[in-house]
Simulated scan of single mutants.
Amino acid sequence: MANWDPEKKLLTLKIVFYGPALSGKTTNIIALHDQLQPELKGDMQVLETHNDRTLFFDLLPLGIKTSNNTLIKLKLYTVPGQVIHNSTRKAVLSRCDGVIFVADSQNTQSENNAESFNNLIKNIKLVGLDIEQLPLVVQFNKRDLVNIVSIDELQTRWSETPWKLFFASALNQEGVIETFTELLNILYISIDNSYSLSEKHELTQSAFVTQIIHGQAQ
Rank of each mutant, 00 (worst) to 15 (best):
T108Y: 12
F101H: 15
Y195D: 06
K125M: 09
T179G: 05
K200Q: 05
T54H: 01
K142I: 01
S190F: 07
F57G: 07
S67E: 11
L120Q: 01
W158P: 09
D5S: 13
S116V: 04
N69H: 13
D144N: 06
N185Y: 10
Q133K: 03
L120R: 01
P135G: 11
H33R: 01
H214E: 14
I191N: 06
V138S: 13
N141M: 09
H85M: 04
I30V: 10
I177Y: 12
D152F: 05
T27Q: 10
G19D: 02
K125I: 14
N112H: 15
F167N: 08
S169V: 02
E7Q: 12
C96D: 12
T108E: 14
K164L: 01
Q37K: 09
S67T: 06
D104W: 07
V83R: 11
D130E: 14
L126H: 13
L145R: 15
L10M: 13
A31I: 03
L11D: 10
P20F: 04
T161A: 03
Y18V: 06
L136M: 15
N51E: 12
P38N: 02
I72Y: 02
L32P: 06
I177C: 02
V176A: 01
P6Y: 09
S23H: 05
E153N: 11
I124D: 03
E199C: 03
N112R: 13
A103P: 13
D192A: 03
D192K: 06
L55A: 06
E132Q: 09
Q82E: 07
R143I: 08
D152Y: 10
Q139L: 00
